[in-house]
Amino acid sequence: MEVDILELSDRSAKFVLSNVRTAFANSIRRAMISDVPTLAIEYANIYDNTSVIYDEQLALRLSLIPLITDIESYVPQARCPTCGGEGCPVCEVSLSLSAEGPGMVFSRDMISSDPKIQPADGNIPIVDLKKGQKLVLEAIAHMGYGKDSVKWQAGIACGYKNMPIVSIENCDACGKCASECPKGIIHIEESGATISEEDLIKCSICRLCERMCEISAIKVSFNESAFVFTMESDGSYSARDLVLNAAKVIKGRAEELVGILDRL
């Protein structure tokens, strides 16, 4: 297996995963979306709410705020070894919010009981309070999985495509393929059509160029064992940590399977 990183930022990544089967690539994608546990608000104890938003809608809005997650410090509540699911500092974290209008209440106004756990983005608007309106609440965040609710989904816009292969031979430089290409990656030179290595990754394998070529000089196919991955994180993990945690989840499951087979 080989990994070539094309782009890596705090929230997103693009990389080429080579020498793996489609099933493995898809398992990484699925693990990023649904199997990496993250923190999200599960309950809100509302002390006062005189805003225009009713309590249930407010709780829903709070739950969709991504929280920076420390996977080493917290465990999913159902698996908590300390409380067995009752709720304790190992499996839940509390965030309090107290605001009075006039003014917009933002996610950065929430005060966490654990300084490591903060909203991933501080500028998410929660509610606009008018003069005299008050909002006082305590929100309880739990670890959970994206397969249970979208609020626990750390990986967003995770996808992959096969690595494109475009071969050009005996081109007469008519330029029809270049004008038809929706990505604009084919360039016409005196020797014929060319695609640079960087642009090849942008190819969506639509094969419009192949259909337009009257002399069949251009052939488009794809590598079945190489994948161009594109993924984004909601901010609960960095893009790097999200891929790493997804790989750990798959490794953990494989080890679990080996353990079961060993006992047979």
Binding site: A40, I41, E42, Y43, A44, N45, I46, Y47, D48, N49, T50, D55, E56, L58, A59, L60, L62, S63, A139, S149, K151
Partner: peptide, 12 residues
């Protein structure tokens, strides 16, 4: 009038 008791709301 809003009651003075604490309301526990499940976020879903």
């Amino acid at each position: 009038e809003r009651p003075t008791t604490i309301k526990r709301i499940k976020a879903e």
